[in-house]
Every structure is written in C-alpha cells, then in structure tokens.
C-alpha cells in the first residue's frame, strides 16, 4: 500500500466516524424515534379508513369525477398527517443539538463543521428514506385493498410506480428541507413554529384562495406532492416540475443551514 492510498483510506474512515456518530445519536434517542412511528401509524391508519371511504365514494361519482379518478393520490391522503411526524423528526434531529448544548460536544468531536453537518443530514435523511418507503408502500397497499379490486391501482399500472416512489422521495426531501430550516433557525420550537403553519395551514389556505393559487402551487409541499398524482391537475404544477421546485426549496434550506453553521459561533 502506498502512503497516498493509506492516507486516503484513513480519511474515509475518519469521515465514516462522523456518520457513525450521527447515526448513534439518532438511534439512542427514543423520543425522536417515536415521531417516526407516529408518522407510520397515522399514515397507514388513515389510508385504511380512506380506502373504505373511497370505495363507496366511487359509486356516487358522476362521469367527470370518474374520469379524474386517482386511487393512488387519494389513497395516500393520510401522508398529509404522517408528514407531521416526519417533519417533527427532522426538526428534532437538528434542533435538539442547540436546545441541549450537544452542539458543543458535537463540534469539539468533529470540528469540521461541513463534515458534521453533512453527516447529520445524511444520517437523518437515510433513516427518513427508509421510513418513507415503508410508510408509503404500507399506506398504498392498505388503501388499495380498501378500495377493492375493481377500481384500485396496482403497482404495474402506468404511473403508479412513479407516484409511489415519488411519494418516498417527496417525504425524504421534506425531512431534508426541515433539517435545513432547523439548522438555520437553531431551535426546535422555532422551527416547528415556522414549518407546521407553512405545511399544514398556509398551503391549505392559500390554495383555496383563487388569487394566490398561482403562488401557492410553488410552496414546497404543494409542489412536491404533485409527483404522487396519476392524473395531473390543471392549476397545480406537473409531477416532475413540482418535484424540481421541491428540490430547489430543499437545496436552499440546506445551504442556508450550512451558511449559518459556518458563520455563527456556538
């Protein structure tokens, strides 16, 4: 082994240490993990109820309603509530550092702030991705079972794989976005105070006011959620267009958090 590869390998392992530490942090904090369990239970529970409701609803629909019938998006409606748990998880992973003073220990252990930030976001994102996949597919299958074989969607149908995988990506981006916001605001309570109204009040309100609809469709959750639709909506962004808008929001939040971490004192 040459000196160069030896050094490089050691460098990689050192960075691996920072990631292992962040993963250990998440894993050893039960209060944080509860938020993810809550997300799963809420989403799948609501999907089960929705499935049955949707089966009856289809029968009452007129031709126009049936032409825009979207069993995937409707079935995954519970994700709106599950998001709450995912956002709370993301905010706690980052925000708890500041509220407890752990950030001082973190940065004395890993003084390269970029490495620390990347490791923390990567650990949080990987876990949220796993939870997103499990939650999305559990909700999908439960809701489709409720809708029944006549009108439901199966994974092989056109667009269904894109919509469901898209839902996983959307949820993961939502977590990453929230972690970036928490890193900018350096506080769990402040971050939740901003994100919860943004996701669960602002976008609901704005999308129902016709004049600001055009603005509201660019909000991160409104934009990102379109990837889950089989049938695109006229006054919303398209599936991929929306996802890219969500990616842009996420990049901005993560970059903002990085700048704050680099510049501010601890």
């Amino acid at each position: 082994m040459t000196a160069e590869t030896g050094t490089a390998e050691r460098g990689v392992r050192r960075r691996g240490g920072a990631l292992a530490a962040e993963w250990t942090k998440i894993r050893t904090l039960p209060s944080t993990l509860w938020t993810l369990l809550t997300a799963f239970v809420l989403t799948v529970g609501i999907a089960a109820v929705y499935g049955i409701v949707l089966r009856d609803a289809y029968g009452d629909m007129d031709a126009k309603g049936r032409s825009t019938w979207d069993p995937v998006y409707s079935g995954l409606n519970g994700l709106t509530f599950g998001e709450l748990g995912m956002v709370a998880f993301a905010v706690l992973v980052v925000g708890a550092e500041y509220s407890t003073g752990t950030i001082r220990a973190s940065l004395t252990a890993v003084p390269r702030r970029g490495l620390f930030y990347a490791s923390q976001l990567l650990a949080g994102t990987l876990l949220s991705l796993v939870v997103a996949v499990v939650t999305t597919y559990a909700a999908f299958f439960v809701s489709q079972a409720g809708i029944g074989p006549e009108h439901n969607a199966s994974l092989g149908d056109p667009g269904v794989l894109r919509a469901t995988l898209g839902a996983c990506v959307y949820l993961t981006l939502l977590c990453l976005f929230s972690m970036g916001v928490a890193a900018m605001l350096r506080s769990s309570t402040l971050s939740l105070g901003v994100l919860i109204p943004l996701f669960f009040i602002l976008s609901e309100v704005l999308t129902n006011v016709s004049k600001v609809k055009t603005v509201a469709k660019y909000l991160p959750d409104e934009a990102g959620r379109q990837i889950m639709r089989l049938v695109p909506w006229d006054d919303k962004l398209g599936a991929w267009e929306g996802l890219w808008v969500m990616v842009a929001w996420t990049v901005a939040a993560v970059a903002g958090g990085y700048v704050m971490l680099r510049r501010r004192e601890i």
Binding site: R13, R14, G17, A18, A20, A21, T28, A105, A109
Partner: peptide, 12 residues
Amino acid sequence: RSHLLWLARSNR
C-alpha cells in the same frame, strides 16, 4: 452510556 458511545464513534 449512549452519550459517550456516540462521542467514541465520532473519533473511532
């Protein structure tokens, strides 16, 4: 123990 464990992990 977990607090010390993550610190230990960070520096191998």
